[in-house]
Amino acid sequence: MKKRLKFIRQIGTVVALIGSLFSYAMFQGGFVSWFLFYSFLPFGLCALAIAAYPLRRIQVTRAIASSSYYAGDTLTVTISLRLPFFVPLAYVMVDENWPPALQQTERNRAMPLFWRKTYSCTYTVSHLPRGEHLFSAIRVTMTDWLGLVTKETAFPIEDAIIVYPRYVEMKYRKISSQLDQGGAASSIPLHRDMTMAVGVREYVQGDRFSWIHWKASARKNELMTKEFEERQSDDIVVVLDRTPTPLFEEMVTFTASFLRAAIKKGVQTGLISVGSDRFIFPSRNGEAHLQQLFYHLAKTACDSLQPFARIIQQEMTQWPLSVSINYVTSQLTKETAASLSDFAAKNRCGTVFLIKRDEHGVANEERELLEQLRRKGIITIITTPEQFANALFGGGQR
């Protein structure tokens, strides 16, 4: 309503100026008064023409080179205008309705049309941030030579781009470590063959109900669980810590690189990502699966309200022991270390990737916790963005 009243006042001002100059010339007469009237008349008529111009009939298009990018890429956008018929404009201002994450400083562009009916401009957005970005509308504003009348309208032209996380070319291999006793412990757990039971042991929380050996339980008067013949499996699952941290982008880059390297190697790979939402991707491989994982990583955020220790306690019990668990985090707490130690006692050691900005970013408390985890048989790797490519080949601190 305010814009309409402002527009009406602008038209009234133009009409009043033309009328005043005409009245002045009629009553005053002489060269000067008529010179003023005829000098202003073209500008006044141009302003009235813009006021009556059907702005909605302008054809506005936005051309984006691609719909998918990677973080850090440069986006190129071309906006084109085609006027239905000529009008003597001073310029047309084009204002993009920018996605909030882009935060561009140059929010509009002036197109000096002069005597043209078509015009286009191209702008670039460098260092694209990860995420899904929606361009929702283009606002077009036109004005006359003296700026007496300004007319604007918005064209709801929607375009979306997806910016996948950046990744590095990571070399993939199975990770192994040496226990204090000198034996080699593979980070790839052994898969249990359910068709052949080779012994019994005491029941521990997390064992399946079908594994209980009822005869042995009756003899010992306590629950006993069958032990099965074991064989190796290459399946892995990556657990991404989504608790708030300033290193979340580095964690996403490492996770994307790790997932890509494993899937390219033919390894069945899954992802657990729990924050304000919960996404569980089962262990698979193939390009379609990798694209699905990257699409999730493009939109995920560090918005978890629960501590990482509670999340892994809730999620890990649902996965078989045949899957190797890899934890990606930027901060190691006592609660997380305690949870990982509990899983190690159940023959699920796994690997912890601690992401830091540099080699001096590890706190003393974290170093003590890392040493405790190593003694439990849990592989721990401290890595920085510069070391991601060789993180699985000693490109980090163990």
Score class of each variant (00 low, 15 high):
residue 75 L to E: 04
residue 303 D to Y: 05
residue 47 A to I: 03
residue 150 T to G: 09
residue 216 A to S: 14
residue 341 S to A: 14
residue 249 E to S: 07
residue 371 E to G: 08
residue 13 T to N: 05
residue 115 W to S: 15
residue 210 S to Q: 11
residue 235 D to I: 00
residue 39 S to R: 11
residue 343 F to Q: 06
residue 303 D to C: 02
residue 310 R to L: 12
residue 28 Q to Y: 08
residue 308 F to Y: 10
residue 246 P to F: 10
residue 362 V to L: 05
residue 384 T to L: 01
residue 50 I to K: 06
residue 266 G to I: 04
residue 188 I to P: 08
residue 86 F to I: 13
residue 96 E to T: 06
residue 106 E to R: 11
residue 252 V to T: 03
residue 329 T to V: 04
residue 265 K to W: 09
residue 374 R to D: 00
residue 239 V to N: 07
residue 115 W to I: 15
residue 210 S to V: 10
residue 300 T to G: 06
residue 183 G to C: 08
residue 383 T to K: 01
residue 107 R to M: 12
residue 240 L to W: 00
residue 8 I to V: 15
residue 309 A to L: 06
residue 57 R to A: 09
residue 216 A to H: 09
residue 111 M to W: 09
residue 244 P to N: 05
residue 180 D to P: 08
residue 35 F to K: 09
residue 358 D to F: 06
residue 91 Y to C: 15
residue 273 S to I: 00
residue 208 R to H: 08
residue 98 W to T: 13
residue 352 V to C: 09
residue 68 S to T: 13
residue 209 F to Q: 12
residue 323 V to D: 02
residue 376 K to C: 11
residue 83 L to F: 11
residue 153 T to Q: 05
residue 84 P to Q: 05
residue 239 V to G: 05
residue 325 I to P: 00
residue 348 R to D: 00
residue 190 L to V: 07
residue 151 K to T: 13
residue 44 G to E: 01
residue 202 E to Q: 07
residue 275 G to K: 05
residue 374 R to P: 01
residue 75 L to W: 08
residue 68 S to Y: 07
